[in-house]
Amino acid sequence: MKILEVSNLVKNYPNFTLDNVTFTLEKGCIMGFIGRNGAGKTTTLKSILNLVHPDSGDIKIFNLPFAGNENAIRERIGYATGSNIFYPRNTLDEIAETTKTFYSKWSDEDYTRYMKLFDLDGKKKLKDLSEGMKVKYSLTLALSHKAELLILDEPTSGLDPISRDEILSIFKYLKANGTTILFSTHITADLEKCADSITYIKKGKIIKSLPIAEFINSFDASSLEEIMLSQERNTSFDIEA
Protein backbone atom coordinates (compact mmCIF):
# COMPACT_ATOMS: atom_id res chain seq x y z
CA MET A 1 0.00 0.00 0.00
CA LYS A 2 1.35 3.40 -0.99
CA ILE A 3 1.62 5.82 1.93
CA LEU A 4 3.16 8.67 -0.03
CA GLU A 5 2.99 9.50 -3.74
CA VAL A 6 4.91 12.47 -5.09
CA SER A 7 4.29 13.13 -8.80
CA ASN A 8 5.97 15.69 -11.05
CA LEU A 9 6.70 18.14 -8.28
CA VAL A 10 8.09 21.43 -9.62
CA LYS A 11 9.26 24.42 -7.62
CA ASN A 12 11.20 27.25 -9.22
CA TYR A 13 13.54 29.55 -7.31
CA PRO A 14 15.79 32.16 -8.92
CA ASN A 15 18.86 29.92 -8.59
CA PHE A 16 17.34 26.48 -8.13
CA THR A 17 14.60 24.32 -9.58
CA LEU A 18 12.96 21.26 -8.16
CA ASP A 19 12.42 19.49 -11.44
CA ASN A 20 9.58 16.96 -11.81
CA VAL A 21 10.34 15.14 -8.58
CA THR A 22 8.49 11.80 -8.57
CA PHE A 23 8.67 8.89 -6.13
CA THR A 24 6.45 6.67 -3.98
CA LEU A 25 6.82 5.24 -0.50
CA GLU A 26 5.24 1.95 0.60
CA LYS A 27 3.68 1.36 4.02
CA GLY A 28 6.06 0.06 6.70
CA CYS A 29 9.20 0.94 4.75
CA ILE A 30 12.14 3.16 5.53
CA MET A 31 13.12 5.28 2.55
CA GLY A 32 16.47 7.06 2.52
CA PHE A 33 16.32 10.35 0.67
CA ILE A 34 19.87 11.19 -0.33
CA GLY A 35 21.68 13.96 -2.10
CA ARG A 36 24.32 16.60 -1.52
CA ASN A 37 23.66 19.71 0.54
CA GLY A 38 21.48 21.97 -1.59
CA ALA A 39 20.28 19.14 -3.86
CA GLY A 40 16.63 19.80 -2.95
CA LYS A 41 15.98 17.33 -0.12
CA THR A 42 14.58 19.86 2.35
CA THR A 43 12.57 21.67 -0.34
CA THR A 44 11.01 18.35 -1.35
CA LEU A 45 10.16 17.42 2.24
CA LYS A 46 8.75 20.89 2.91
CA SER A 47 6.66 20.64 -0.26
CA ILE A 48 5.27 17.32 0.95
CA LEU A 49 4.27 19.05 4.19
CA ASN A 50 2.88 22.05 2.28
CA LEU A 51 5.31 24.38 4.04
CA VAL A 52 6.58 25.26 0.57
CA HIS A 53 4.04 25.78 -2.22
CA PRO A 54 5.04 23.82 -5.32
CA ASP A 55 4.48 25.49 -8.71
CA SER A 56 3.01 22.24 -10.00
CA GLY A 57 2.76 18.53 -9.22
CA ASP A 58 0.67 16.23 -7.07
CA ILE A 59 1.23 14.93 -3.58
CA LYS A 60 -0.90 12.23 -2.04
CA ILE A 61 -0.44 11.05 1.53
CA PHE A 62 -2.44 8.05 2.78
CA ASN A 63 -4.03 8.15 -0.69
CA LEU A 64 -5.44 11.62 0.05
CA PRO A 65 -4.49 14.82 -1.76
CA PHE A 66 -3.00 17.29 0.71
CA ALA A 67 -5.29 20.12 -0.36
CA GLY A 68 -8.56 19.80 1.51
CA ASN A 69 -7.23 17.10 3.84
CA GLU A 70 -4.47 19.00 5.62
CA ASN A 71 -5.68 18.46 9.15
CA ALA A 72 -6.56 14.81 8.68
CA ILE A 73 -3.13 14.17 7.17
CA ARG A 74 -1.22 16.19 9.77
CA GLU A 75 -2.93 14.11 12.51
CA ARG A 76 -1.21 11.06 11.03
CA ILE A 77 2.28 12.35 10.30
CA GLY A 78 5.24 13.40 12.39
CA TYR A 79 8.09 15.65 11.35
CA ALA A 80 11.49 15.98 12.93
CA THR A 81 14.62 17.71 11.88
CA GLY A 82 18.11 17.91 13.28
CA SER A 83 18.27 21.68 12.88
CA ASN A 84 14.91 23.07 14.06
CA ILE A 85 14.22 22.71 17.76
CA PHE A 86 10.94 23.99 19.16
CA TYR A 87 10.61 25.85 22.48
CA PRO A 88 14.08 25.04 23.86
CA ARG A 89 13.42 26.95 27.09
CA ASN A 90 10.41 24.83 28.04
CA THR A 91 10.48 21.46 29.74
CA LEU A 92 9.65 18.35 27.74
CA ASP A 93 6.47 17.79 29.74
CA GLU A 94 5.31 21.38 29.17
CA ILE A 95 5.72 21.04 25.42
CA ALA A 96 3.92 17.69 25.44
CA GLU A 97 1.05 19.09 27.56
CA THR A 98 0.35 21.70 24.90
CA THR A 99 1.07 19.50 21.89
CA LYS A 100 -1.30 16.74 22.99
CA THR A 101 -4.32 19.05 22.90
CA PHE A 102 -4.08 19.18 19.10
CA TYR A 103 -4.17 15.43 18.42
CA SER A 104 -7.26 13.29 18.78
CA LYS A 105 -5.21 10.07 18.97
CA TRP A 106 -2.70 11.29 21.53
CA SER A 107 -1.88 8.63 24.12
CA ASP A 108 -0.41 9.60 27.49
CA GLU A 109 0.53 5.95 27.97
CA ASP A 110 2.57 5.95 24.77
CA TYR A 111 4.19 9.25 25.77
CA THR A 112 5.27 7.81 29.12
CA ARG A 113 6.40 4.58 27.46
CA TYR A 114 8.59 6.29 24.84
CA MET A 115 9.98 8.78 27.37
CA LYS A 116 11.10 5.77 29.45
CA LEU A 117 12.30 3.80 26.42
CA PHE A 118 14.40 6.73 25.19
CA ASP A 119 15.55 7.57 28.72
CA LEU A 120 14.14 11.11 28.60
CA ASP A 121 13.40 13.20 31.71
CA GLY A 122 10.21 15.24 31.28
CA LYS A 123 11.36 17.82 33.82
CA LYS A 124 14.38 18.77 31.73
CA LYS A 125 14.34 21.73 29.39
CA LEU A 126 14.74 20.95 25.73
CA LYS A 127 17.84 23.14 25.46
CA ASP A 128 19.58 20.98 28.06
CA LEU A 129 19.30 17.81 25.97
CA SER A 130 22.04 16.46 23.74
CA GLU A 131 21.39 16.55 19.99
CA GLY A 132 20.58 12.83 19.96
CA MET A 133 18.13 13.22 22.83
CA LYS A 134 16.40 16.10 21.00
CA VAL A 135 15.78 13.82 18.02
CA LYS A 136 14.47 11.12 20.36
CA TYR A 137 12.11 13.66 21.93
CA SER A 138 10.80 14.72 18.49
CA LEU A 139 10.15 11.05 17.77
CA THR A 140 8.41 10.65 21.14
CA LEU A 141 5.98 13.47 20.35
CA ALA A 142 5.26 12.06 16.89
CA LEU A 143 4.77 8.52 18.18
CA SER A 144 2.57 9.64 21.08
CA HIS A 145 0.00 10.94 18.63
CA LYS A 146 0.38 7.64 16.74
CA ALA A 147 1.98 9.10 13.61
CA GLU A 148 1.93 6.51 10.85
CA LEU A 149 4.40 8.37 8.63
CA LEU A 150 7.53 10.05 9.95
CA ILE A 151 9.18 12.64 7.74
CA LEU A 152 12.64 13.28 9.08
CA ASP A 153 14.97 15.90 7.66
CA GLU A 154 18.57 14.96 8.40
CA PRO A 155 17.78 13.72 11.91
CA THR A 156 21.21 12.16 12.37
CA SER A 157 23.28 15.13 11.16
CA GLY A 158 25.49 16.44 13.93
CA LEU A 159 25.13 13.30 16.06
CA ASP A 160 28.06 11.25 17.31
CA PRO A 161 28.34 7.65 15.99
CA ILE A 162 26.82 6.11 19.15
CA SER A 163 23.78 8.42 19.07
CA ARG A 164 23.36 7.80 15.35
CA ASP A 165 23.45 4.07 15.92
CA GLU A 166 20.81 4.41 18.67
CA ILE A 167 18.54 6.45 16.40
CA LEU A 168 18.89 3.91 13.60
CA SER A 169 17.98 1.09 16.02
CA ILE A 170 14.89 3.10 16.97
CA PHE A 171 13.96 3.42 13.28
CA LYS A 172 14.18 -0.36 12.88
CA TYR A 173 12.03 -0.81 15.99
CA LEU A 174 9.43 1.64 14.64
CA LYS A 175 9.41 -0.04 11.25
CA ALA A 176 8.78 -3.39 12.94
CA ASN A 177 5.77 -1.73 14.56
CA GLY A 178 4.36 -0.61 11.21
CA THR A 179 5.59 2.99 11.06
CA THR A 180 6.71 4.32 7.68
CA ILE A 181 9.76 6.57 7.59
CA LEU A 182 11.04 9.00 4.97
CA PHE A 183 14.48 10.01 6.09
CA SER A 184 16.69 12.54 4.34
CA THR A 185 20.41 12.48 4.93
CA HIS A 186 23.77 12.85 3.30
CA ILE A 187 25.29 10.33 5.71
CA THR A 188 24.87 7.32 3.47
CA ALA A 189 26.37 4.82 5.92
CA ASP A 190 23.29 5.28 8.13
CA LEU A 191 20.98 4.17 5.35
CA GLU A 192 22.83 0.95 4.64
CA LYS A 193 21.99 -0.09 8.21
CA CYS A 194 18.25 0.54 8.05
CA ALA A 195 16.76 1.68 4.71
CA ASP A 196 14.57 -0.47 2.48
CA SER A 197 14.71 1.88 -0.47
CA ILE A 198 16.71 4.87 -1.67
CA THR A 199 15.66 7.96 -3.55
CA TYR A 200 18.57 9.96 -4.89
CA ILE A 201 18.16 13.63 -5.78
CA LYS A 202 20.79 15.67 -7.61
CA LYS A 203 20.44 19.38 -8.47
CA GLY A 204 16.68 19.20 -8.01
CA LYS A 205 16.15 16.08 -10.16
CA ILE A 206 15.48 12.54 -9.02
CA ILE A 207 18.24 10.32 -10.39
CA LYS A 208 16.77 7.02 -9.14
CA SER A 209 14.27 5.70 -6.64
CA LEU A 210 14.65 1.95 -6.02
CA PRO A 211 14.92 -0.75 -3.31
CA ILE A 212 18.37 -0.39 -1.75
CA ALA A 213 20.02 -3.53 -3.18
CA GLU A 214 18.68 -2.80 -6.65
CA PHE A 215 19.77 0.82 -6.29
CA ILE A 216 23.37 -0.10 -5.43
CA ASN A 217 23.54 -2.75 -8.18
CA SER A 218 22.20 -0.33 -10.79
CA PHE A 219 25.27 1.83 -10.32
CA ASP A 220 27.57 -1.18 -10.34
CA ALA A 221 28.94 -0.05 -6.96
CA SER A 222 29.47 -1.62 -3.56
CA SER A 223 28.12 1.16 -1.34
CA LEU A 224 25.96 4.27 -1.33
CA GLU A 225 28.99 6.39 -0.52
CA GLU A 226 30.78 5.09 -3.61
CA ILE A 227 27.71 6.00 -5.69
CA MET A 228 27.49 9.50 -4.22
CA LEU A 229 31.21 10.09 -4.78
CA SER A 230 31.11 8.85 -8.36
CA GLN A 231 28.08 10.99 -9.13
CA GLU A 232 28.93 14.17 -7.27
CA ARG A 233 32.70 14.43 -7.04
CA ASN A 234 34.13 17.57 -8.61
CA THR A 235 37.45 16.45 -10.14
CA SER A 236 38.65 20.03 -10.57
CA PHE A 237 39.62 19.98 -6.88
CA ASP A 238 41.91 16.93 -7.31
CA ILE A 239 45.56 17.59 -6.56
CA GLU A 240 48.13 15.62 -8.48
CA ALA A 241 50.81 13.94 -6.36
Binding site: L49, L51, E70, N71, A72, R74, E75, Y79, N84, I85, F86, Y87, P88, R89, T99, F102, Y103
Partner: peptide, 14 residues
Protein backbone atom coordinates in the same frame (compact mmCIF):
# COMPACT_ATOMS: atom_id res chain seq x y z
CA UNK B 1 13.73 32.18 18.13
CA UNK B 2 11.70 29.17 19.30
CA UNK B 3 10.55 28.21 15.78
CA UNK B 4 6.99 28.79 16.82
CA UNK B 5 5.68 29.34 13.29
CA UNK B 6 7.05 26.04 12.00
CA UNK B 7 5.74 24.21 15.07
CA UNK B 8 2.27 25.67 14.52
CA UNK B 9 2.28 24.83 10.82
CA UNK B 10 3.02 21.19 11.58
CA UNK B 11 -0.01 20.91 13.86
CA UNK B 12 -3.38 19.77 12.48
CA UNK B 13 -4.73 23.32 12.31
CA UNK B 14 -5.42 25.72 9.46
Amino acid sequence: LQNDTLFSLLLPVT
